[in-house]
Design a binder for these strands. Structure first.
Length: 397
DNA sequence: GCGCATCGAGGAGTAAACGG
DNA sequence: CCGTTTACTCCTCGATGCGC
């Protein structure tokens, strides 16, 4: 292990730019060139849902705002300032940088992946949160990002540190992708059982007959249990994060094996759903008042409600059930109970349950591993960055 | 002194929580 | 359950800074 760690500023190790001030009325909802706006930069990854905007006009003179794989981007305003930072992946491209988003590129003395892990640390987040200015809206400037104090190891050691952290990230990523595949398998099987191969002679039942919609669980005011609010849900939340212990005030209650479905218009359009598996056994968790809670009755496997909630036919039905005034449209639990579904005979239900029993535990296990690895990464990162833990590295010279 | 880049501030629109 | 309130940021304006 040779070479000194250099005390310097972030600006000594990276080039920092910010994006072009596009006119928003010229954005399109469809296209290929994505506009990287503050809204798209979330914690650790880019988000391209309903928020995606595209630039379909001339890009003459805008070349310098184009993004490349590995670029680190940081949201420069908003109340969640400091949290919103991400590394551009190949799937985010092509993309172009908008105003109020900073782009960081490693200089010759630094490693791009190392820079990313540095930016993703809690320490950087706290730094941004401690220095932002602005009264109504917090802002940071490029120079404030540049003046972040860092300890820069020699390049080979940066590579080594980045490779340790990136391998953890890669493993987490792999598990996420595995779970996506498993979910897709379950969805295919669901379509096959309940729709494509459904026998005409099967009875059509109502969802309300085979599942409890908003089952009654009891929590007293102040009872402390796991709380999951809606902002922690996205389109793929088998493994929701960001839940915490909190005293019950008001909201929907649920148990492991329940499916949550967001009732508010835009969330339904995003398909915000979640399969609850993060609670302790028999614990009653709670969350937004805007959830509809679905729990399959015996003999149906609990996971069926989650697949159903993501099924296009069901979503269309749920959206058509929405009503409400003053622009506050919500799906109605009472109507969702009426959703018609072909009921397979009992032996086939047992068969379905067996197949799901082969998939769901894998999903749960992967989710558990993801949580463990994330915890490990979060403990390791500050120790590696401060030099408290050193990594063996080959001399690059 | 000009033109472009950057910065600070705040209004407006909207997502989501609150709470009667 | 559902209207209201809160909070979030997006977007834009005008001021200021900077290089030539």
């Amino acid at each position: 292990m040779t070479g000194e760690w250099k005390e310097c500023k972030l600006g000594d190790a990276v080039e920092i730019d910010s994006g072009f001030a596009f006119k928003s009325e010229l954005y399109s909802d469809k296209g290929s060139l994505k506009v990287v706006r503050g809204k798209n930069v979330t914690v650790g990854q880019m988000r391209w849902g309903n928020d995606a905007k595209y630039w379909n006009h001339s890009t003459d003179d805008l070349e310098r705002y184009f993004l490349n794989e590995g670029d680190v981007v940081i949201g420069m305003d908003g109340s969640k300032i400091g949290e919103n930072r991400a590394q551009i992946k190949n799937s985010d491209l092509p993309a172009i940088l908008a105003q109020r988003v900073a782009r960081l590129k490693a200089k010759e003395n630094s490693d791009q992946k190392f820079i990313w892990h540095l930016i993703f640390s809690d320490e950087f987040e706290n730094y941004i949160k401690s220095i932002h200015t602005g009264t109504s809206i917090p802002h940071i400037s490029q120079s404030q990002i540049a003046s972040y104090d860092i300890l820069l190891p020699p390049l080979p050691e940066q590579h080594a540190i980045a490779s340790v952290l990136s391998s953890l990230d890669d493993k987490i990523d792999l598990l996420h992708r595995q779970n996506k595949t498993l979910e897709a398998m379950a969805e295919t099987l669901f379509r096959q059982w309940f729709v494509e191969e459904a026998d005409e002679e099967w009875k059509t039942g109502k969802l309300g007959d085979i599942a409890d919609i908003n089952p009654t669980y009891k929590l007293k005011k102040g009872d402390v249990s796991s709380y999951l609010d809606m902002k922690n849900l996205n389109t793929s939340t088998f493994n929701p994060e960001g839940w915490c212990k909190r005293g019950f005030s008001s909201g929907m209650k649920f148990k492991n094996g329940d499916t949550l479905l967001a009732r508010i218009t835009p969330c339904l359009e995003n398909g915000k759903t979640c399969y609850v598996d993060f609670l302790d056994e028999d614990e009653i968790g709670w969350g937004s008042t805007e959830y509809i809670v679905i729990r399959m009755k015996n003999p149906f496997h609990p996971f069926i409600s989650y697949i159903l909630a993501k099924d296009k036919d069901f979503r269309d039905f749920a959206i058509s059930s929405m009503s409400g005034s003053s622009g506050r449209q919500r799906a109605q639990a009472g109507l969702i109970k009426e959703y018609g579904i072909k009921l397979p005979p009992f032996p086939l239900i047992e068969e379905i349950n067996i197949q799901l029993a082969g998939i769901v535990p894998k999903l749960e296990n992967n989710a558990k591993q993801i949580r463990t690895l994330e915890k490990l990464r979060d403990t390791l990162l500050p120790k590696l960055m401060s030099g408290e833990v050193r990594v063996e590295c080959e001399d690059m010279g």
